[in-house]
Design a protein around this nucleic acid. Structure first.
Length: 263
DNA sequence: ATGGTGGTCCTACCA
């Protein structure tokens, strides 16, 4: 089973690229972030025509996440619990049947948090605290769990070409990095780090200042696996070539292959 | 480099 995450930075602007990549990569489950549309305007038909089921959690203009799946959804849960005042669409969970129990897959778009010092940074940390609590509860189920998405966290200096340039940024604050470590310390495995030690593996390059041309990237799109999922991890791949396409997203897909079969 | 680019939606806001 191939499970991918991709921040597509606007599904309407990216639909041709998305369809092309779906045909090329043939992932079984895809977690999308920043769809930037309400559910009714999501280009569902074109994607369904490729054999995918679609679950969206959209919002007008900003944010928005979705899961595409070649397998039928047993269950869909929208929104990260724990704060009824939070109206931002950043979290959707899909549950699927496998030959041995279920697999749970989350598409998450963690708050950016910039600028540090504004109300956006504590919102980011509060969201991460809720994600930690949610994950701790899900881990009690002892099921394969995949938390895939744009975490907006640079975990370590080696996850940036120029780490010193990010010192004042919410993505690289000690508090953001510590919250990401707490999530991992619950027992979650950073899939890419588990099987890939190649230097300069990034998932985001800014549109500005020739960042792509200079490979001035950062690794902020992560796939975290529960023990039951990590034990079945086969491969991890970053589809970096999509960043060279016309009208690219500033993020590229990350794909894991798990030794899990759908029912 | 108090800029640089891009998406959404039409006026700024977000990243």
């Amino acid at each position: 089973m191939k499970i991918a995450t991709w921040n597509i930075n606007g599904v309407k602007a990216r639909i041709d690229s998305l369809l092309h990549w779906l045909r090329e990569a043939s992932p079984d489950i895809v977690c999308l972030q920043e769809i930037k549309t309400v559910d009714d305007l999501f280009p569902r038909l074109e994607i369904e025509a490729l054999g995918y089921n679609v679950a969206t959690h959209g919002q007008k203009g900003f944010n928005g996440v979705a899961i595409l799946s070649k397998f039928r959804f047993d269950e869909v849960n929208r929104g990260l619990p724990g704060n009824d005042a939070d109206e931002q669409a950043r979290f959707v969970e899909g549950v699927f049947s496998t030959k041995r129990g279920v697999i749970r897959v989350v598409s998450l778009y963690l708050p950016n948090g910039n600028p540090v010092g504004s109300e956006k940074f504590p919102y980011k940390l509060e969201w991460m605290q809720r994600l930690e609590r949610w994950t701790r509860e899900r881990l009690e189920l002892e099921e394969p769990l995949v938390l895939a998405g744009d975490y907006n966290v640079i975990p370590e200096p080696e996850d940036a070409k120029n780490p010193e340039a990010w010192l004042g940024d919410a993505l690289f604050q000690p508090e953001s990095r510590a919250a990401f470590r707490r999530l991992k310390n619950l027992g979650m495995t950073d899939a890419l780090r588990a099987v890939n030690d190649r230097p300069e593996t990034y998932t985001f390059w800014d549109y500005q200042a020739g960042a792509w041309q200079k490979n001035n990237g950062i690794r902020i799109d992560h796939i975290l696996l529960s023990p039951e999922a990590a034990d079945r991890l086969r491969t991890v791949r970053v589809d970096k070539h999509t960043r060279s396409w016309e009208k690219p997203s500033d993020h590229v897909p990350v794909v894991v292959e798990l030794d899990v079969e759908a029912a």
